[in-house]
């Protein structure tokens, strides 16, 4: 019970804000200033919040906040514009790459990225994605593959693993009925328009570091104007996988990577990256 002398914080927001007294402590780490200082709606252990932060760290470090425009289509991360302190456009389900094309073609000097889920990119929006990459749009596609439709509560996605239980594949994904999971990155890497394709995961400290490096590369490669960068990130969705965050991390290492092996799939030729 608070005593009368205690000043109560006005809002929960204020109550939960970590305190930092710059004069008394050396700040060794802080959230990037390119992020809006609010609570996120993502579930505990969700990859979206972490990857938002990584992207915004890169934007801050490269000092390109003023030149960066993001596109977030429908999916759990449709609210990305509430968190990323940059100009952004929400897109219809699946259409992020078309929207990004519209932005980038008119403003070729800006950095444009999409942030798409696997339902969004690999199901309803695979056409727009493939054609944008085939045209070699100078955009970055951040592809959050969590093997389910997160936002609509865990239905099967084109990336759902064989045998994986979802609300619409209650007995496990039957490959003879629905086909095998689409390996988007391997598929898109075939297109000459793709210059950089890599698959990473953020379920370990090393994975986070590698993912950040991939995002840094991808933003830099945009300056080359040589084509599309696709950074696939295996994302944890503990809520719909019906796991604890730790179990979800383990599931990525033990199951997801069997279908979706991590690492670079296509990297630009050395000559092309010289001036990046």
């Amino acid at each position: 019970m608070p005593t009368e002398e205690q000043v109560l914080p006005e809002t929960l927001q204020e109550l939960n804000k970590p305190e930092c007294h710059d004069e008394e402590y050396d700040m060794v780490y802080h959230k990037p200033h390119t992020m809006v200082d609010v609570h996120m709606h993502y579930c505990p252990g969700c990859a979206h919040s972490l990857v938002h932060k990584l992207i915004m760290e890169v934007v801050e470090e490269m000092d390109i906040q003023e030149q960066t425009i993001g596109v977030a289509p429908v999916g759990c991360s449709v609210f990305a514009y509430d968190y990323m302190d940059i100009d952004m456009q929400e897109a219809a389900h699946g259409r992020a790459c078309a929207v990004a094309t519209g932005i980038k073609r008119l403003m070729p000097e800006k950095y444009v990225f999409t942030y798409q889920g696997d339902g969004d990119l690999a199901a309803i929006g695979i056409g727009e994605t493939l054609h944008a990459i085939n045209r070699g749009e100078n955009i970055l596609i951040v592809f959050m593959n969590n093997a389910v439709y997160g936002m609509t509560s865990g239905q099967m996605a084109p990336t759902t693993l064989p045998g994986m239980h979802t609300t619409t594949s209650p007995d496990g994904r039957d490959v003879s009925y629905y086909g095998a999971p689409i390996k988007v990155s391997e598929l898109m890497a075939q297109l000459p328009g793709a210059i950089y394709v890599t698959r990473q995961a953020v379920n370990s400290a090393n994975g986070v570091r590698r993912t950040k490096k991939a995002l840094q590369n991808a933003f830099k490669y945009q300056q080359l104007k040589k084509g599309t960068c696709l950074v696939e990130i295996i994302g944890n969705c503990p809520s719909n996988w019906k796991m604890t965050p730790l179990e979800a991390s383990k599931f990525i290492d033990e199951e997801m990577v069997k279908t979706f092996p991590l690492g670079d799939i296509k990297v630009p030729k050395a000559a092309e990256t010289n001036n990046a």
Partner: peptide
Amino acid sequence: IVMQAESEVASINMVYGAAGA
């Protein structure tokens, strides 16, 4: 800018992006 899109769905969403900018 003039572009033949891959579909009318793409066209209108390209319009959305450019108009939004």
